[in-house]
Design a protein around this nucleic acid. Sequence first.
DNA 1: TGCAATTAGTTGCAATAGCATCCTATTGAA
DNA 2: TTCAATAGGATGCTATTGCAACTAATTGCA
Lengths: 152, 152
Amino acid sequence: MSEHWQRNDKEAESHGQYISAINRHMQILISAELAPYRIGSGQYIFLMAIAFQQPITQKALSEKLLIDKTTTAKAIAKLEAEGYVRREADPADNRYHLLYLTDLGREVVPHVQEALARVKNKTRKDITDEEYGLLISLLKIVLRNLTEQEKT
Amino acid sequence: MSEHWQRNDKEAESHGQYISAINRHMQILISAELAPYRIGSGQYIFLMAIAFQQPITQKALSEKLLIDKTTTAKAIAKLEAEGYVRREADPADNRYHLLYLTDLGREVVPHVQEALARVKNKTRKDITDEEYGLLISLLKIVLRNLTEQEKT
DNA sequence: TGCAATTAGTTGCAATAGCATCCTATTGAA
DNA sequence: TTCAATAGGATGCTATTGCAACTAATTGCA
């Protein structure tokens, strides 16, 4: 009912709650946008990353996106099942799978980009370019703090 | 291998990827911190919200935290199973469950607060108070944009 | 050269989360 | 008053995600 979300003495305001709420609601929006293409919120990141750089291995994807390799494996399996991605053994090292977009994959990528742009524009409302740049740079710092090695 | 994460022409930089990566890595950290108390990353928000305002109903929790009511039901069931939360039917309206902390719940809350503070401090490194305040306010706008009703 | 260690990827399992649907209690209009 | 509509909550199902443990391929050292 009330307009405030969380702000008071006992409950110090923290980015964590906002981050997780934003993440959940963005996933819901993106899932709805990409449902016509049978692409879920767990797969579009991989599709776009492959579109940007192909061929690429699952290991490289996992490192670039900071996602566990088993999650990557499952997402790629879905994209392959939908016919958007093709897997090929690396002739130089059979442990690697080289990932390519299929023709269908190349067709769907622009639609996915548009859908993501729609979601981004909706969430960016009332935020100037300058503020948005600042937001991104602060999020980068937070992410770096979370993922950098402990220098114990 | 390379230090950059995502930045180039074809792949426009967007907050979404950072938000989800931060969320995932924060969940991992928080899960590890709270494992000794058998509280998962899906439950601590509810525990803290109940600690702040009790009694409270599941519906009120869902609205405050912007979380689906079925997710709330499952999280509360776990907190109840661990003995941290007590459920009581509202005598005024038997559809409601009033939620209270148990003695055990009151004991564990400060430890959870400390664990959350540790995670927050780790992620806040290299960010000034002013910048952090700005980050929070921008995240609030993003969340509002995501959750406000379409005025179509 | 041969075998142990490492590496890329997979599988099984569990936790988180939302949607559709159902149940029960309450409310409200005819 | 009665019964349909509403509301809080629970249950079943599915998707996303990570960890532990595993397989298969490659590397490197004795």
